[in-house]
Computed example of a mutant assay.
Amino acid sequence: MTLSVSTGQAVDLRVQPVDEVLDRVQRSLQVGLLPDTMVRKRRSVGARTDRDTWVRIERRLLDKISDQGWNGTESAARLKGIAQPEWHGCVVWAAPDGPVMWRADETELLPGAPVGNAILSEAPELPDDWWGALNTSLDALAAQSTRRVATPDTETVTQALVTESVRGVFSGDFDTTIEQWVPAHADLNWANMTAPAFSLFDWEDWGNAPLGLDSASLWASSLAVPALADRVWHERRSDFESRDGKVMTLFACSKILGPYAHPEDPRLEPARRIAEQVIKELQAG
């Protein structure tokens, strides 16, 4: 296949041919990608290599690349105390026929398979030491410093974005002002962590974000399994009980209950119920 996917329009790499892109990555990194290991997502393609590493290739529109660039995986390599794949190198290039850039990052192989899809419908079996490793990594991340700003869903997180997202779904007299901004992964869900050995990957969007963003994101992706959502809340209790964590809970719920809500999403009812309770807590001060 020779059809280009480098136009400025939105494309879905799960269905678009990417042979030219794969060929370029293999030449640039001097590595062979193993076709039977290919994982194709909407904006990215990944594969194991013939030297026992992993390559993740992403396509991003120029207007989705902020001033800080989009070297999240590369810059995350300097973070300390976090279980993540070691970064080896990358190749980046501009598409010749559209406002698009491509990036391929090579990392060590993951120590296990992803826990599941981004949103789970049944509880995974995770030992206590897995949860311990999750807490250690998230706490270590939040304690570090960076000039990067998180870009969840490729959108730069700002106070204005938080307020707009929350107010667009929830009414009531409560303050959405964020008090503490800390480094966050910004795409924390069950598809970006491994088990039984814990490792956190896909660092493209990490950066400073409101305290509690990661915990709320993981909790929201667990709501279809009440016991799992409860475990996330228990493990990250200090985040959820903070004022910023409550605002982030509403922020996460707004993504479930907002204009793109699916009527059959099993998370709708628990998200509404929890949001009502959190709003009462915020109003009570």
Rank of each mutant, 00 (worst) to 15 (best):
L3P: 09
L3A: 15
S6I: 10
V11L: 13
L13A: 04
Q16K: 15
P17E: 07
D19Q: 14
L22C: 06
L22F: 07
D23A: 13
Q30K: 15
V31W: 09
G32A: 13
L34C: 04
P35D: 11
T37K: 07
T37A: 03
T37E: 07
R48C: 10
T49R: 01
D52T: 09
R60G: 11
I65E: 01
D67N: 13
N71L: 15
A77N: 13
L79G: 11
Q84P: 07
E86A: 14
A95Y: 08
P96T: 05
M101R: 14
W102C: 05
A104R: 04
E108I: 08
A113N: 12
S121C: 09
D129Q: 12
A133N: 11
A133M: 08
A133T: 08
L134M: 14
A140F: 05
L141A: 08
L141V: 03
A143R: 14
S145A: 15
S145W: 15
A150R: 01
A150C: 04
E155S: 14
L161N: 09
V162P: 03
V166A: 00
V169A: 00
S171C: 08
F174I: 00
W181Q: 05
A184W: 12
H185E: 06
W190R: 10
M193W: 09
T194V: 06
A195T: 11
S199Q: 15
W203H: 06
E204G: 11
D205G: 09
G207P: 10
A209D: 02
P210F: 02
G212T: 02
L213V: 01
D214R: 01
S217P: 03
L218R: 00
P226F: 02
E241R: 11
S242K: 05
K246W: 02
G258I: 01
P259I: 08
Y260M: 09
A261T: 08
A261R: 12
H262R: 12
P266Y: 03
E269Y: 07
P270D: 01
E276W: 03
